[in-house]
């Protein structure tokens, strides 16, 4: 649980620090004079979708931190832990996911430059590479199983399948959003909305790449 606790402490510390800024030297019981109209609550770049994504990423962080915590805790209980031989295919898959992230980053850049055709191309490439990653993961599962490492054989196997599956499910969820953005890009909706949608997609992909890096590292270490 140490991993989860550290992450939650970090999240809470960030939250508390921000809150101290909002509450210190504030006297809530003193009313405005009414001379000037009340100011807006947040700066314009802090938009609801961005905050929404940030909060969602915190939830996903908590989920993976807890799953990894469980993995690490279990590894130290009992001597029956037989580590899974990590298939070499995972390195190739990692390359695909990095490429997908880069493609989406470029797509985000093309929305800022207003290049519609490039945007659609890069967006499609990002999604395609991601799909290839997920298929690659499924292949890795198949090879593991063929090599005599089904999920039920050992807790280490079960954790391997669980962690990779949770990650792939998050990517598949992302692909649903990506499909919608691709459709929007095809229909030519207003630029700011499209830019926002592509931006959220790209950030989510970078985040999941980071999560994959962490998971892959943990799996390799064990």
């Amino acid at each position: 649980m140490t991993v989860s606790l550290v992450l939650i402490v970090l999240l809470m510390a960030g939250f508390a620090g921000w809150l101290i800024g909002q509450s210190i030297r504030v006297r809530p019981w003193v009313a405005d004079t009414g001379a000037t109209p009340p100011a807006p609550q947040t700066p314009p770049f802090v938009t609801a979708p961005r905050v929404g994504l940030a909060v969602f990423l915190a939830v996903v962080t908590s989920l993976f931190a807890l799953a990894v915590s469980a993995f690490l805790m279990r590894r130290h209980i009992g001597a029956d832990w037989q580590a899974v031989p990590v298939p070499a295919l995972l390195w190739w898959n990692t390359g695909l996911l990095i490429a997908a992230s880069v493609a989406l980053q470029l797509a985000w850049r093309s929305t800022r430059q207003g290049r519609q055709a490039a945007l659609r191309r890069r967006l499609a490439l990002g999604g395609g590479l991601t799909l290839a990653f997920v298929i690659g993961q499924a292949l890795a599962w198949q090879r593991l199983e063929a090599a005599g490492h089904p999920p039920a054989a050992n807790p280490a196997n079960a954790f391997f399948y669980l962690l990779t599956a949770l990650h792939a499910l998050h990517l598949l969820g992302g692909l649903v959003a990506w499909g919608r953005v691709l459709a929007l890009a095809g229909r030519g909706i207003s630029q700011p909305r499209l830019r926002q949608a592509v931006e959220l997609c790209a950030l989510y992909w970078h985040f999941l790449l980071l999560v994959w890096g962490g998971l892959f590292g943990v799996l390799l270490m064990s």
């Binding site: 909002q22 509450s23 504030v26 809530p28 405005d32 609550q41 947040t42 802090v46 938009t47 609801a48």
Partner: peptide, 13 residues
């Protein structure tokens, strides 16, 4: 709560 507050509704209000 973070984004939808109307003008003047600070966190401490």
């Amino acid at each position: 709560v973070l984004q939808g507050r109307t003008r003047g509704m600070t966190l401490m209000r």
